[in-house]
């Protein structure tokens, strides 16, 4: 088999599998948003603070998903392994 084609195909597979990491942030962010909704329901006057904290927390939780995205992008567009064959 042509090693280049094999590495390219495996990299595409790896990029797709890396994006499975999108599951985690999705669940976490949904839970965060739900909790924030409950908090606003209990204390509507604190909506501004709750929203700001929620956005910050969501952004932090999102970074794992973004790492996966960066790994996938590197595998697809700046693959370090293809040049070795």
């Amino acid at each position: 088999m042509d090693p280049k084609a094999f590495v390219a195909g495996m990299s595409a597979l790896g990029a797709g599998m890396a994006m499975i990491a999108g599951l985690g942030p999705g669940i976490g962010e949904g839970y965060t948003a739900g909790q924030a909704c409950a908090a606003i329901g209990r204390q509507p006057e604190a909506q501004g603070d709750i929203t700001r904290t929620m956005i910050l927390g969501i952004a932090m939780a999102e970074s794992t998903g973004i790492y996966a995205l960066v790994v996938a992008l590197i595998l697809l567009f700046a693959n370090p392994f293809v040049g070795q064959f």
């Binding site: 952004a59 970074s63 973004i66 790492y67 995205l69 960066v70």
Partner: peptide
């Protein structure tokens, strides 16, 4: 690293 990757990843992901 996480701050820069977060911003870069979001914008580059949108672009892609």
């Amino acid at each position: 690293v996480s701050m820069s990757f977060r911003h870069f990843g979001n914008m580059a992901g949108g672009l892609v």
